[in-house]
């Protein structure tokens, strides 16, 4: 029986994540359709969806699987696409103090960009470990359920939704809606602009490594802006 503070945390986490979770729906459907168009059977597609549970890694490796690329290249590509999660995992790790190892593995498996961005601040602030675990797991499990359900919709609907509806644009909007409140702080805005510009400049780098370089550039720029900003205020 979960404790009352776990349930209170779960309620709050779910409520704060619910509006932005709508962005997962087109993303999951697009991924479902892409797996079918790669040539997977519905069973294979949903198998990948259950095992991997990661839109970027799934969409990024599908073209390689499709052309019969060697397994090592597929795995290295997936790792490159997922490197950002090491940064996220390190940033949010403090939020799991007081939580046992099996639950940490479970929480780690469920870590996604959206839940990370939504939950990080309170995960580091709140004292009660049960509240924190509920606050993290409720939106994570909701993401998982939405992801599986709407990937299945995409798998079953593949071919019958007109491409020109550009449903995938809703995923772009969802990521932007996450970014807007963050960018109200000056150093965050500097981080976002530097990272975005770098990603555009380095778009030709193989294995989407430009994405990782851009993230690092953005972090450094944001951190530098914070220092510079602080110095000006104390001077």
């Amino acid at each position: 029986m979960p404790s009352s503070s776990f349930r209170a945390g779960a309620r709050e986490g779910f409520r704060s994540f619910l509006p932005m979770s709508v962005g997962l729906i087109p993303w999951a459907m697009v991924t479902g359709m892409a797996m079918i168009s790669t040539g997977f059977t519905p069973t294979q597609a949903m198998g990948m969806n259950l095992i991997v549970f990661a839109g970027t890694a799934q969409l990024g490796t599908l073209p390689l699987i499709g052309i019969g690329a060697p397994l090592w290249l597929i795995v290295v590509t997936a790792l490159a696409l997922n490197l950002r999660f090491i940064i996220f995992s390190a940033a949010i790790a403090e939020g799991f103090r007081g939580v046992d190892t099996p639950r940490r593995w479970f929480a780690g498996h469920l870590l996604t960009d959206g839940v990370f961005a939504c939950c990080l601040e309170k995960m580091l602030k709140v004292e009660d470990p049960r509240w924190r675990l509920g606050y993290y797991l409720a939106p994570s499990l909701w993401s998982w359920a939405l992801w599986q359900a709407f990937a299945l919709v995409g798998v079953l609907a593949a071919g019958s939704i007109p491409k020109h509806w550009s449903l995938e644009f809703m995923a772009t909007i969802a990521l932007l809606v996450l970014l807007v409140p963050m960018a109200k702080q000056r150093p965050m805005l500097v981080a976002a602009v530097s990272s975005g510009a770098t990603a555009v400049l380095l778009r030709g780098m193989p294995l989407r490594l430009g994405l990782i370089v851009a993230i690092v550039v953005g972090i450094v720029a944001g951190f530098a802006a914070e220092h510079w900003h602080g110095k000006r205020e104390t001077a």
Binding site: F88, L189, A191, S195, G196, A197, V216, G218, I219, F223
Partner: peptide, 14 residues
């Protein structure tokens, strides 16, 4: 690392 989410979101979206 607090800047990671904003940087990653921008690197994907822009």
């Amino acid at each position: 690392l607090r800047y990671a989410p904003a940087a990653a979101l921008a690197a994907i979206v822009v």
